[in-house]
Amino acid sequence: MTTRQLRRAATTTAAAATLALLAACGEDGTGDRAVSADGTPPTSALAAGTHLGAVEITTADEPGLRRFYTRGVGLEVLERTDEATLLGSDGTGLLRLVVDDAPADDPSEAGLYHSAFLYDEASELAPALLRSSQIAGAAYQGSADHTVSLAFYLGDPDGNGVELYLDRPVEGWEWTEEGVTMGSAPLDPNAFIGENLDEADLTATPDGVTLGHLHLRAGDLEEARAFYQDALGLALTARTDGAIFLSAGGYHHHLGVNTWTAAGAGQRPDSLGLRVVRLAVPDVGELDALATRLEEAGVAAERDGDTVTTTDPWRTTVVVTVQA
């Protein structure tokens, strides 16, 4: 056996010791779907090119979370003050940590189910997965082959859900009259790490990590659909038991919303965890159209130059800006 093969075997053994194999993320994503009339991606009111901005979460342990998201996930510190830290990749902000001493997040309330960080290459995802699972206070939670993507789930040191994932080529995504096919087949994290990790990759900073999607907890799916689809302008791309998925521009989803733990929840109390969801639209015309949709839907919003701020039915702040 070569030195390289020995190192790969050692890395795989370490991964096996670190990652406890758990159930593949609960819901299987294969229930009733209703979105696309002709087997193509549905058209969203928000234009193609719309994407997520930096999600904002509050924490009483900024150093612990900063360590997890930099040394583990592979983000970089872009800005830091006593009150907040902006983390990102290639100069783009993806996550803002705001220092707070509020009570801990309650999974039975509306809030953040997970933030999902998208990698360009399996060779960048594998070391991030291994590093993240070894950070003190982090917890490996499972994995799944979602047909459109390969996904691995963890909890950060505060218990916020985190997904690290890799998209499959868009040409292979299946769109039916019921929407995009997103399954939940078993995915062995140890095999994935063993196949895609060299020892030299362990400390490498990944290039171009993005915030691929957010998944939220909510109290009612129809209220969530009315706000995020009808008022905000995302298109419904898939539906399963207890969850809906929405996107702009034909992506499988920029936003998931579920009621798996928070069914019936009302407006969120002040707590740690999710604080602000951000979207960026391509131009001012898109922002104008959004402001009109919100007004026609009776949703309160404030316009300040190239920014529209509103709140969803559970008191989560949603900020939409024009791309810089």
Rank of each mutant, 00 (worst) to 15 (best):
I57L: 09
I57H: 05
I57E: 04
I57W: 05
I57R: 05
T58K: 09
T59D: 10
T59S: 13
A60N: 14
A60H: 15
A60R: 13
A60F: 03
E62T: 15
E62A: 14
E62N: 01
E62Q: 13
P63L: 10
P63S: 12
L65K: 04
L65G: 05
L65Q: 07
R66F: 14
R66P: 10
R66L: 15
R67W: 09
F68L: 02
Y69A: 02
Y69K: 07
Y69W: 09
T70R: 01
T70K: 03
R71C: 04
V73I: 12
G74V: 04
G74T: 01
L75I: 12
E76Q: 12
E76L: 11
L78G: 13
L78W: 13
E79S: 11
E79L: 07
R80W: 00
R80L: 08
T81I: 10
T81E: 13
T81P: 08
D82N: 09
D82Y: 00
E83P: 00
E83A: 15
A84K: 11
T85L: 14
L86D: 15
L86E: 14
G88V: 15
S89A: 12
S89D: 08
T92M: 10
G93N: 11
L95F: 00
L95E: 07
V98C: 12
V99H: 15
V99Q: 15
D100R: 15
D101Q: 11
A102S: 11
A102Q: 10
A104Q: 09
A104L: 06
D105L: 02
D105K: 00
D106V: 02
D106A: 02
D106Y: 01
S108P: 00
S108H: 14
S108Q: 13
E109N: 13
A110N: 03
G111F: 05
G111T: 07
Y113M: 00
H114Q: 04
S115Q: 12
S115G: 14
A116K: 06
L118V: 07
L118E: 07
L118I: 10
Y119M: 02
D120F: 11
D120R: 15
A122S: 12
A122F: 01
A122H: 12
A122Y: 04
S123H: 12
E124L: 03
P127T: 08
A128L: 06
A128I: 07
L129M: 11
L130C: 11
L130A: 09
R131G: 01
S132D: 05
S132Q: 03
S132C: 04
Q134L: 11
Q134F: 05
Q134S: 14
A136M: 07
G137P: 02
A138T: 05
A138D: 03
A139F: 08
Q141A: 13
S143H: 05
S143M: 02
A144K: 03
D145Y: 06
D145Q: 04
H146K: 01
H146E: 03
T147Q: 09
T147I: 12
T147Y: 09
T147P: 06
T147N: 09
T147G: 05
T147H: 10
V148N: 01
V148D: 03
L150D: 09
A151M: 05
F152W: 04
F152N: 06
Y153L: 01
Y153K: 02
L154N: 00
L154H: 01
G155N: 12
G155R: 10
G155P: 00
D156P: 05
D156W: 00
D156K: 02
P157I: 00
P157T: 01
P157M: 06
